[in-house]
């Protein structure tokens, strides 16, 4: 069984995987990181999105071994200690989560977006989450939350 070594949420981890395992399954089943959700299993919804070297990918379609030696960030890796990431806080403040199943993926997509483009336009925000489906919200409060997070981050002087 090959060993996958990655920097997961800032910590080096080693985990035995099968060659055919997908990253989502390794995170959920082998590492117990249940924040990464599976909804469609075919790259169509973004519920399973995680960051690999800072870029959002759908982990349900991502061979686990591709993460070999990479930095992987899941929803659990956002924020520090007990403090929420400003994006997470903005999601709460804007009543963005309804059922919440899409939310980890949405937050990850928002994180990827704001890290690359701290001052997105409304259109850029929409593009940033256009790979994430939500059945509950109509997306409006999610967009507002990302706008709010961008504002707050700008006040504090940029993301990270």
């Amino acid at each position: 069984m090959p060993t996958l070594k990655m920097i997961l949420n800032g910590q080096e981890v080693f985990v035995d995987v099968e060659a055919g395992d997908l990253l989502a399954d390794v995170l959920r089943d082998k590492l117990g990181l249940i924040g990464t959700k599976i909804s469609c299993g075919e790259g169509e919804c973004g519920a399973c999105a995680v960051l690999v070297d800072g870029r959002a990918v759908d982990s349900c379609l991502y061979p686990a071994l591709k993460a070999q030696g990479r930095e992987v960030t899941t929803i659990e890796g956002l924020g520090q200690d007990n403090r929420l990431d400003p994006i997470q806080q903005a999601f709460i403040d804007k009543t963005a989560p309804q059922c919440g199943y899409c939310i980890p993926g949405m937050v990850i997509s928002a994180k990827a977006l704001l890290d690359e483009n701290p001052h997105p336009t409304r259109q850029e925000i929409e593009e940033g989450i256009s790979g994430n489906l939500c059945r509950c919200t109509g997306y409006y409060q999610i967009i507002e939350a990302i706008e709010l997070a961008a504002e707050r981050l700008a006040e504090k002087g940029g993301p990270k």
């Binding site: 759908d58 991502y62 940033g128 256009s130 790979g131």
Partner: peptide, 9 residues
């Protein structure tokens, strides 16, 4: 093509 996550990969 697809969405951002698909285009990233």
């Amino acid at each position: 093509v697809g969405g951002p996550q698909i285009r990233n990969v």
